[in-house]
């Protein structure tokens, strides 16, 4: 699993060759897709890759917001 996650270290990286987002041809669902994607196709591994980034960076629930 770890080896595959390395393919997508940042949200900008495509999860697999089905991802169409690029600077030249931006995907309109880019933002949602990063959080709850993939949206345009179904693939558990691709979902896992996104989740891994979220887990890695979501260190704190945020504070002082009550």
């Amino acid at each position: 699993m770890k080896g595959e996650i390395k393919l997508m270290e940042r949200f900008i990286d495509p999860c697999c060759d089905k991802c169409v987002n690029s600077k030249i041809k931006p995907c309109e669902n880019f933002v949602e897709c990063r959080l709850s994607g993939p949206i345009c196709h179904e693939n558990k591994e691709c979902t896992g890759k996104r989740q891994a980034i979220i887990e890695k960076y979501n260190h704190s629930p945020g504070f002082f917001q009550h």
């Binding site: 940042r10 949200f11 933002v31 949602e32 990063r34 959080l35 980034i53 979220i54 960076y57 979501n58 704190s60 945020g62 504070f63 002082f64 917001q65 009550h66």
Partner: peptide
């Protein structure tokens, strides 16, 4: 006693990492 809206992410995220901002609903 604080309520942080403007400062919501200040001290919470790494400001040099856009992914951390996106995770906290950034650019939504």
């Amino acid at each position: 006693q604080q309520k942080r809206l403007v400062l919501r992410n200040c001290g919470v995220i790494d400001p040099e990492n856009i992914d951390e901002y996106i995770i906290r609903d950034g650019y939504s």
